[in-house]
Amino acid sequence: MTKATRPAAFRGASKYVLDDELAKIVNVSMALEMPLLLKGEPGTGKTMLAHAIAESMGMPLIVLNVKSSMKLVEALYQYDTLTRLNDSRFGDSKRDVSDIEAYIRMGKIGQAFVSEVRTVLLIDEIDKADTDFQDDMLDVLDQMQFDIIEIDKTITARHRPVIIITSNAKKDLSDPFLGRCNFHHIAFPDPDMMRLILGVHFPKLDEELIGACVKTFYRLRELRGIEKKPATRELINWLRALKSDPDFRPQVLQQGRVPYLGILFKKSADLFQAVQQLGRGQI
């Protein structure tokens, strides 16, 4: 592929702060037409990346939320037998009961394949499904086609979608699966990066407040015995809460008082721990 024909490179989107490394990986994956597997702590923006790519490249985004009980065929297409049964029994619909194709609905992967334009296909939380699902799915994504056995028809992708796969697990996926993906692990953003992220979300907020909040936030993440550490999402919500509170002054954070802790700590045991350790002045 020469420079001229290379598709536009991905450069981040309005609500997403992309780091250099990840940008390169996204571009390499798109050029190699390989799925990109993203791992990392919750709240590091794995899912957001797909949204950002879709936005910046002007492609529609199709999201497949993987569930533990999911079978591959559900992601490809669905044969709505119940409706057909119903139609054949009562015959009051406009569909032609003898035409099975009228009862085939495309699943998320199917939609990405038949779409008129190139799409971004986000396969979210792949680790929830079992290994067979993962391997079979990659076969489909590799070959860019699948069969609808009910009507003996092969669906071939019109455009190879940009595939982003996310996994929360620290555990490895199967080897054949990994062999077919590019891989990146998104680390939790460091305080400087976090400031940039917040800057994107709250363009009008003043630097001092953001600085104080980020500082407190990272100290809170270091409290001991916390099961679910607050992540970016919690921080953004927390800032939103602080912003809407007219009585809030950034100075109280320096005094070690943290309002709205409940937004940051979602488990009662964690909240209790945090309150206790704050009370002892340990942050």
């Binding site: 290379r6 780091d19 940039l196």
Partner: peptide, 11 residues
């Protein structure tokens, strides 16, 4: 030149 530099700090 075809840079992929975006928001965030440069390394």
């Amino acid at each position: 030149p075809g840079g992929m530099r975006v928001g965030g700090q440069s390394r």
